[in-house]
């Protein structure tokens, strides 16, 4: 199970990183969201995986580590605030600059050959 869990964390990280490296703000926001899932899962895993061990006293015989859970709980909420801030910033940038490229301007293609692929609408 731990292997599968770790694989998922790695995959989500990879997907997040790839999207974060894209040139349009929305993709970056989606990438950041994926990355925060991965980070939350990673932090949570530092308390080790346990089944039927909720950290509620008297509900089970042994308890999972409550500390990473508390940290991740606030991380989820703050993560939401961050995603919200990033996406609103992206909207504002588009409103003020007229495009949604992360650099605020659409890079000019280097040669005429690549003009077909690059460019704004």
């Amino acid at each position: 199970m731990e292997g599968m869990y770790a694989f998922s964390v790695g995959l989500l990280t990879a997907c997040g990183v790839f999207l974060t490296l894209r040139g349009r703000s929305f993709s970056v926001v989606v990438g950041l969201t994926l990355l925060s899932y991965a980070v939350n899962l990673f932090l949570f895993a530092s308390g080790r995986l346990k089944l039927n061990a909720a950290a509620v006293l008297g509900e089970s015989e042994h308890y999972g580590d409550p500390l990473p859970q508390a940290l991740v709980l606030t991380a989820i909420v703050i993560g939401f605030a961050m995603t919200a801030f990033a996406v609103i910033l992206a909207m504002r940038a588009r409103a003020d600059l007229g495009n949604d490229h992360v650099d605020g301007q659409i890079p000019q293609p280097k040669s005429s050959l690549s003009q077909k692929t690059g460019g704004a609408k």
């Binding site: 292997g3 770790a6 790695g10 990183v17 990673f42 080790r48």
Partner: peptide
Amino acid sequence: RDLGLAAFVGGTVGTICYALMT
């Protein structure tokens, strides 16, 4: 290039996560 970096990052993070949990 980006796929390479993403795979590298994801692989490292996954490895650490696995090593940590076990």
